[in-house]
Amino acid sequence: MPPLPDDPSPPSRPWGPWAAIAGLVLGLSLAFAWVAGWIGPAARLTAPRLVDDIENGKPFPGFRRAHSRGVCVAGYFEPSAEAATLSRARVFRQPRTPVQGRLSIGGGDPFGAEAQARVRSLALSLRTDDGQEWRMAMNSFPFFAVATPAGFHAQLLASRPDPATGKPDPAKMAAFLERYPEAARFQAWAKSAPWSSSWANTEYNGVNAFRFIDAQGRSRFVRWSMQPQAAFEALATTTRQDAEADYLQRELAQRLAQGPLRWDLVVTEAAAGDPVDDPSQPWPASRPTHVAGTLVLERSEPQATGACRDVNYDPTVVPDGVALSDDPILAARAAAYSISFNRRERETARGDIARPAPTHGTEATR
Rank of each mutant, 00 (worst) to 15 (best):
S140Y: 07
S29P: 02
S104T: 03
G306C: 04
L122I: 11
T97C: 12
Q187Y: 15
A245C: 11
A270H: 00
G108N: 15
A332E: 02
G361Q: 08
V291I: 14
A74P: 03
A89I: 06
A158G: 02
L50S: 07
K191T: 09
E363Q: 12
S300A: 07
P170A: 11
A137Y: 01
R90Q: 09
A209S: 13
L24A: 13
P95K: 02
F63Y: 11
S121A: 14
K58F: 08
E82D: 12
R366N: 11
Q216Y: 12
M136D: 08
L4G: 09
A188Y: 05
P319N: 11
A332I: 05
E233A: 15
P288K: 07
W283T: 05
I105W: 01
G101M: 01
A123I: 00
A147M: 13
W134R: 06
Q241S: 14
G75T: 05
I353K: 14
S80A: 01
W199C: 04
R90M: 09
R13C: 13
F77N: 01
R240I: 03
V146Q: 04
R118A: 08
F92A: 03
G166K: 05
K172N: 11
E251L: 13
T202I: 05
P161S: 11
H290D: 00
N205L: 07
S125P: 01
A349S: 11
Q155F: 13
N139T: 13
R309L: 09
A236V: 06
P2Y: 10
L156A: 04
A215G: 06
R179A: 13
Q229S: 10
A292S: 02
A31M: 04
L256K: 05
V146S: 06
L330A: 14
H153C: 06
K58T: 09
G321F: 02
D320W: 06
N208F: 14
V222C: 03
D314S: 12
D7R: 05
H153K: 00
M138G: 04
E133S: 15
T128P: 10
Y337P: 01
D129N: 12
L330K: 08
D6A: 14
A215M: 00
S80E: 01
